[in-house]
């Protein structure tokens, strides 16, 4: 998939997840631990959250890489920042899996 299209598809996935989760949370305020824990204990919610984070990872990589290509002219610095970005996004994914399947 081309970056341009990937950016839009991942955005749409994240937008749908955002609206669903925002609706659930706003309908259940004030939030209690039992409800919060039960929400993330459901299989569909865990998978949906993981798909959201995978979309975020892809979306953030394309977006940050575009920003770095536009503003960082020094090749070595840009490469360094790109590697840091990939490591950061990768650790977000690892952390998410750890949180969801504890």
């Amino acid at each position: 998939m081309r970056d341009w299209l990937a950016q839009r598809v991942t955005a749409a996935i994240m937008a749908v997840y955002t609206l669903i989760v925002a609706a659930i949370v706003l309908m259940n305020t004030p939030l209690k631990y039992a409800g919060w824990q039960a929400l993330f204990a459901q299989g569909w919610m865990r998978v949906a959250t993981l798909l959201f984070m995978l979309s975020l990872a892809w979306h953030a990589w394309v977006g940050v890489r575009d920003i770095l290509m536009d503003y960082i002219k020094h090749d070595g610095l840009r490469l360094t920042l790109q590697v840091f970005t990939l490591l950061l996004i990768g650790s977000y994914l690892g952390w998410t899996i750890q949180i969801l399947w504890r």
Partner: peptide
């Protein structure tokens, strides 16, 4: 977008982690 990638996403993951870890 840049702010959301860093540091806000990390911060929200931290809060999600702490809030789900225990009561």
């Amino acid at each position: 977008g840049a702010l959301l990638v860093f540091p806000l996403a990390a911060w929200l993951l931290y809060m999600l982690d702490a809030s789900l870890a225990s009561e």
